[in-house]
Design a protein around this nucleic acid. Sequence first.
DNA 1: CGTATTGCTACGATAATTGTAGCAACGGAG
DNA 2: CTCCGTTGCTACAATTATCGTAGCAATACG
Lengths: 108, 108
Amino acid sequence: MAKQAASKTRGVRGSRTGRPIMALLDLLGRRWSLRILWELRDEPLTSRVLRTACDEASPTVLQARLTELREAGFVELGDGGGYGLTALGRELCETFMPLYRFAERWKR
Amino acid sequence: MAKQAASKTRGVRGSRTGRPIMALLDLLGRRWSLRILWELRDEPLTSRVLRTACDEASPTVLQARLTELREAGFVELGDGGGYGLTALGRELCETFMPLYRFAERWKR
DNA sequence: CGTATTGCTACGATAATTGTAGCAACGGAG
DNA sequence: CTCCGTTGCTACAATTATCGTAGCAATACG
């Protein structure tokens, strides 16, 4: 294979040049992020119910993810209590909903 | 709401539910998993080039993810060297490719 | 008042990730 | 052959992230 030093000119594919996709992959790549969005896909859940749905994950990291997802605009805390997806969050959830069927065929 | 059965033998990593979607979300929820798949979407890359593309991530965890993704059947090591997506991996990559357009509109 | 929710936090213990350095194997040039 | 550069891959200590348990203030209802 040829030398790769010259590839700097095109800006190596995927360097974190602030490209939104990288920030998104990083956020979704944190533990419980995908799972939280997945569990909220149908209806809002209270923090405790969400915790139960997420296999009794530690509330520490769950709160951290919820805060991050809220700051990202994907999740919101309803005035009556309970976490739910925003319109943007629902949209995001739809984009990886096909994963379910893929996983079923995957089976591992 | 009633009490729920609190402890079974708990795996270290979450999602022992047996549901494929949970195992998949858990695997993709590990650091650099999504990124690796993303960087390999076009063409196979050698380990070092992949590392550069992944923002100089530590080779330790990169190797770990590559091993996991290979065991999952998403990534393979070509006989000429270089990591590439399997047919299954390409299929998986396609399912969350819409994330790119979503991220562009998201901007944060 | 007591009791039960809600969202949220503290904190020690444990697991995951980082950063740096380096290995054996293979191949091309000299 | 040796020398050099590449490949995939690993060791190791240091740093983060996550876990697990306990508990907080605020709210609501009887």
